[in-house]
Nucleic acid binder design. Structure first.
Length: 244
DNA sequence: GCCCAGGTGGGTA
DNA sequence: TACCCACATGGG
């Protein structure tokens, strides 16, 4: 029992139903997002690294350049000179840093898995995740994106949108699950069935909401599909109050 | 011109 | 642990 007298499993189940209600509203508004926009698992992994702190439109140009030069393949990427790589991915921003990150990723892939993503993904989820987190340039979001969207493994991807949206839904920046990346990841994973298709769509829908509605500066609460489920708009935090 | 975009690593207190 | 900064391009 918790201090409030509610058994933990009851609270978790209730929060799980809440998260599913949020999911259904988002799906109803935005529809299936069709993530990840890539043709191969390796292209997903490359895109996951290139999209760090950058708009996807920029990444598309970099991916197209790599594709045009036959570099969307592990062995070719491994063999490419870093300066060459940097020049091709220039539109994705941070090109020197990201060229190094792509290199360290494929070097890891060959050192540990014979260059095969399939071998990486054949391991238990948390083991594969720990390995990816050991690669220079791959942090938790990039690791989870690769595992979920390239590997089809049931890990939940947390990003800036996820954190912003959840902090507004709860209207409590001090909520324990907002403390760090892993706490927020566990918040979803401990309350939802470990279904890769659900995690895939859920994260993509949070991005859709974060981009168009639950924006950083000025959220469009009056147009939000989560009205009624969100304390931020309900309890006077948001512009929705002024709008109604 | 300014802000923001599907983060991460390194340094400092 | 908790900030702060570098990393860089492109679109609104």
């Amino acid at each position: 029992m918790t201090a409030a007298g509610v058994p933990a499993e009851v609270r978790l189940a209730a929060e799980g139903r809440y998260l599913l209600a949020v999911y259904r509203r988002l799906l109803g508004r935005f529809g299936p997002q069709g993530w990840w926009p890539a043709r191969t698992p390796f292209e997903v992994a490359v895109g996951a690294i290139l999209t760090q702190a950058v708009a996807w439109a920029n990444v598309e140009k970099a991916i197209a350049a790599l594709e045009a030069h036959g570099l969307l393949e592990p062995a070719a990427l491994l063999a490419a000179p870093p300066e060459r790589l940097a020049e091709l991915i220039r539109p994705a921003g941070y090109f020197n840093a990201k060229a190094r990150k792509l290199k360290s990723f494929v070097e890891f892939l060959f050192a540990r898995h014979d260059g095969s993503l399939e071998r990486l993904f054949a391991q238990p989820l948390e083991r594969a995740r720990r390995e990816l987190l050991g690669v220079w340039g791959i942090g938790p979001e990039t690791a989870d994106s690769i595992l979920l969207y390239a590997g089809g493994l049931p890990t939940f991807v947390v990003d800036a949108y996820t954190r912003r949206i959840l902090s507004r839904l709860w209207a409590d920046p001090a909520a324990p699950f907002l403390r760090d990346y892993d706490a927020l990841r566990r918040f979803f994973m401990e309350r939802l069935v470990p279904d890769p298709a659900l995690f895939n769509e859920y994260h993509a829908l949070l991005v859709a909401l974060g981009k168009g509605v639950c924006r950083k500066g000025r959220p469009r609460c009056a147009d939000c599909p989560l009205l009624g489920l969100c304390r931020f708009a309900h309890e006077g935090g948001g512009p929705a109050v002024a709008a109604r």
